[in-house]
Design a protein around this nucleic acid. Structure first.
Lengths: 211, 211
DNA sequence: AGAATCGGATACAGGTCTGTATCCGATACG
DNA sequence: CGTATCGGATACAGACCTGTATCCGATTCT
C-alpha cells in the first residue's frame, strides 16, 4: 500500500520493461546484464533494484504482459466470431499472427525454459505461470465451443496443451527453416478439423449455462 | 605435427570431454565455467587451454563425437537391414533410441543454438557442422533407398532435413510432456509411409551403381 | 646421457556482474 | 510551509571468470 510519490513509479517500471524487451531481443536472457538494461532505460541499477528483485522477476513481468496480450487477442476473436463456414479456422487465422515480436518472445521464453530446467525453484514459478495461462485458455476454449454450438468430448486442459504445442512446434520449425513454412500454417490447417473431431453438436433444446 | 610426449595427450583430452559432458548436463553451457570443467577432470585451467581454444571449441568437439555416434548407428542399421515387411520402420525402430544421453544432448545443443543465434560467427561454425552432418546422412539415405530397391523422387537433402526436424520436434514434445508421448513414436510411425511416398520402385533390370 | 620439446600447473592482470547499504533531492500531505 | 516518505542515484564489497605469460617437471629421441 504505497502512498507517496507513486506517480513516477509506473513510468519507471514501464521504461525498464521496455528496455528489457529490447535488450533481451538483442542479447538474450543470459547475455543481458541488469546494468545494461537499466542504462538502456536511461536509469541506474538502483532504479532497477527498487522495482524488481532480480532478473528472473523481470522476465516474469514480461511473461505476464505477453500472456495478457495472447488472452486478449483470443478472447476478442472468440467474441467477434461470425457464422462463417469454418468458424474455428477463421478464429485461428485472425488470432494466431506470428510477427517479429512473437518470434522474439519465443526465443526468449525458450532460453528461459532451459534455464528453469536447471533451477528447480525457478521451474516451479514458471510452471505455475504456465498453469495460470492455460487456465485462461481453457476458459476461452469453453466459450468457443459454446459459441459454435458444440460440446467438447475431450479434456479441455489437454486440448489447450495440444494447441500450444502445435503453435510452438510450428514456430520452432519456421525459425529453423525460414521461408519454408509459414508459422501459422500448421495451426490453421490442422486444428479446425481436430476441434471438430473432439466435440459433438449439442442437442437443439439444451444450451443452459453452467460455470 | 606434434611429436613429443603425445601419449598423455589423448588421455587428457578425453578426460576433459568427459568432464564437460557431465558438467554441461548438470549446469548447462552458460552455467559451466572452464574452471569447474577442468577441476571435474582433475586438471587445471592450464590443461584446458592447452587442449582447447575456448568453451565453444569444446562444445564443437562434443558435437563431432555425437555426430559420429549418430552416423555410426544409422550406418550399421542400414547395413543390417533384413527383408522384413517394413524395412524402413525396422530401421528407425532400431536406430532411433532416445535414451538419457540423447535427451541431455538435445538440451545442450538447443541452448547452444540459441547462443549461436546471437553470435553470427558462432552461428557460421554451427551451420557448417550441421551441413557436414546432413551430408553424411544424405549418403546413408541413398544407401537405404538402394538397399530396399527404390529410387527417391524427392531431394535427399530436404528429406534429411525433414527427418531431423521430426526427430527433434518429437523429442521437444516429449520433454515438455514427459510420459505422454514416447520420443521415438512420431518418427517410427510417420517416417516409413513418408519414405514410401517420396520414392518409386526401380525397374527390375536397372540397378547399376553411380556415385 | 644430454638436449630439445612437450604438457600441464601456477601466477597475473583485467574485466564484469550482482546485491546491498546509504544518501539526497523531490514530492505529497497535513 | 514544514515534515515525513518515496524513488532513484551512488558507492561499496565480494564473487567469478577469462585469457595469457611464465615456469618446471617429465619424456622422447639421438
Amino acid at each position: 500500500m504505497p502512498k507517496g510519490l507513486t506517480k513516477r513509479r509506473p513510468q519507471t517500471t514501464a521504461r525498464l520493461l521496455e528496455a528489457a524487451q529490447e535488450t533481451f531481443a538483442e542479447r538474450g536472457f543470459y547475455g543481458s546484464s541488469i546494468e545494461v538494461i537499466s542504462e538502456r532505460a536511461g536509469l541506474t541499477r538502483g532504479a532497477f533494484y527498487s522495482n524488481f528483485r532480480n532478473k528472473e522477476e523481470l522476465f516474469f513481468a514480461l511473461f505476464d504482459l505477453h500472456a495478457q496480450r495472447v488472452v486478449d487477442r483470443l478472447d476478442q476473436a472468440v467474441g467477434e466470431l461470425d457464422a462463417s463456414d469454418d468458424p474455428v479456422r477463421a478464429l485461428f487465422a485472425r488470432a494466431v499472427t506470428v510477427d517479429a515480436a512473437e518470434r522474439r518472445w519465443y526465443l526468449l521464453s525458450t532460453e528461459f525454459t532451459l534455464h528453469a530446467i536447471r533451477h528447480p525453484e525457478t521451474a516451479r514459478l514458471l510452471a505455475e505461470r504456465d498453469r495460470a495461462l492455460r487456465e485462461q485458455i481453457v476458459g476461452i476454449l469453453a466459450r468457443l465451443f459454446a459459441r459454435i454450438g458444440r460440446r467438447p468430448t475431450a479434456d479441455l486442459d489437454s486440448l489447450a496443451r495440444l494447441t500450444t504445442a502445435v503453435y510452438e512446434g510450428s514456430l520452432a520449425q519456421s525459425l529453423v527453416e525460414p521461408g519454408e513454412l509459414a508459422p501459422e500454417e500448421l495451426a490453421v490447417t490442422y486444428l479446425p478439423p481436430l476441434f471438430d473431431a473432439v466435440s459433438e453438436p449439442v442437442a437443439p433444446g439444451e444450451d443452459a449455462e453452467q460455470a
